[in-house]
Design a protein around this nucleic acid. Structure first.
Lengths: 108, 108
DNA sequence: TTGCGTTATGCATAGTGAAACATAACGAAA
DNA sequence: TTTCGTTATGTTTCACTATGCATAACGCAA
């Protein structure tokens, strides 16, 4: 038996979660929403929708996006997004460690 | 902005969660799956299904159930269920405190 | 001007899980 | 034997979400 959980930040609606963090990181690595979606095995439609919703909720842009041009376009994280990501990942790491430890203490 | 989460125990399939804990406690208080379901605003069908699935997963009975008789029947927690509930509630309490604290530390 | 690889977005469909509906069976008491 | 309030369970309906499809627009390069 093991513990599982989903955790997210919200303010009325869901704002930020692990899936979004992974998506944003992959977009930044790939330089493109499209390639990131392929790599994560999701549709571009879905990836784009997630990012758009999150941006609306957070109230600031997560991606600098370019349409057209040499490579067709592309996207990368804004500075705000990088800052937020860092805080979120730190938070997530601490939560994961805490839950793992508490589970062990109570169920093994 | 605040943190939200769902947490549960599983072993292949989901076996125990907050909703089930509340349901079991309410059944025990009421002495009946039926009255518990009404109080929690869910259908008897749903409540009964949750309990049955959990019992299959856990491998031991959660409820002593009686069909027919003076009051029509009824249900109460088994000793095993009481023991498991206690462990689970302790676990949950510790997790809640930890997450609250970590969130505060990182986002306020 | 044509082609390419993006971002951007509406819409239609499928799939999943919850809720609702319908019955059967039980056993004490009147 | 009838009534009552349970437990027990299959089936059907519904709502919401995820997925897939189709298409427009953009801007650089050849």
């Amino acid at each position: 038996m093991r513990v599982k959980y989903k955790i997210w930040l919200e303010d009325g609606d869901r704002i930020f979660s692990d899936g979004l963090a992974l998506l944003l990181k992959t977009i930044d690595d790939e330089g493109s929403i499209n390639r990131a979606a392929q790599q994560l095995n999701m549709s571009y439609r879905q990836a784009w929708g997630h990012v758009k919703k999150a941006e609306q909720r957070l109230g600031f842009a997560l991606l600098d996006k370019k349409v057209g041009g040499e490579a067709g376009g592309g996207a990368e994280l804004t500075d705000s997004a990088r800052g937020f990501m860092q805080k979120y990942l730190q938070f997530r790491s601490e939560v994961h460690d805490a839950i793992t430890q508490i589970f062990k203490r109570n169920f093994t």
